[in-house]
Amino acid sequence: MIFSFVSISRFGLMNSGQDSTSQDSAEQGDSAASSSDDHRRSFIATGSAVAMTTGLVASYGTFASMAGRFLFPAGGRRSVGWQFVAAVASWQPGKSLEYTAPSGATVVIARHGEADEAEAFIALSSVCPHLGCRVHWESQNDRFFCPCHNGAFDRQGVATQGPPAKAGQSLKAYPLKIEAGLLYVEAPLHSVGGDAPTAVAQNDPSAQNDSSAPDAVQADAVEKGRLS
């Protein structure tokens, strides 16, 4: 490519058109070559050259950094947020419910303690700690199973088989907090499909967990998320 360009330019110089004389340009080219060395020296040496270079680097550099900042999606749009789950007072210990996060992710939240504090609850993520696939509940095997690399977890989210068990990775628990008697979970907010994915059926908590969630959840699902 470059070679062809060079030959084109030679060709151009030798055959430059009728409006200019090839002799002239050739001579001029030679003398320019000798004087260009002087130019180059002064170009680097003089203060004006330094000012010019600094100016160019600073201004275009700033412009480039602004463009770089644009590459990062707008801030303030956190991918997780504290979301209301249910009132603590109406939640019996031992019961659990299936919470569907705004992103569409299902989170099984169970109350295992009597105390009115976040530690009495656990919210398990369905994201496998190994490589991020989705685990699902296998009621016949009483385990959460990850189809990607055959990872398995017990009810508490502790890995029992597969790569997660070898690495000692448990299912991630979502942070929980209680404010004014209401339980909040820090859950993922955005799904890949945007804020309002069209797959509605998937988000109906009662439709999904008939056979695929722990027994306690099944009992609750009948109540359509209303704890009693």
Binding site: I8, F11, G12, L13, N15, S16, G17, D19, S20, D24, S25, Q28, G29, S31, A32
Partner: peptide, 19 residues
Amino acid sequence: MHGVTELRFDDDPPNEPRH
């Protein structure tokens, strides 16, 4: 290939290099 069209202006100094 063609070279830039060269133009001469009336007020150009006659002995100035053309390039």
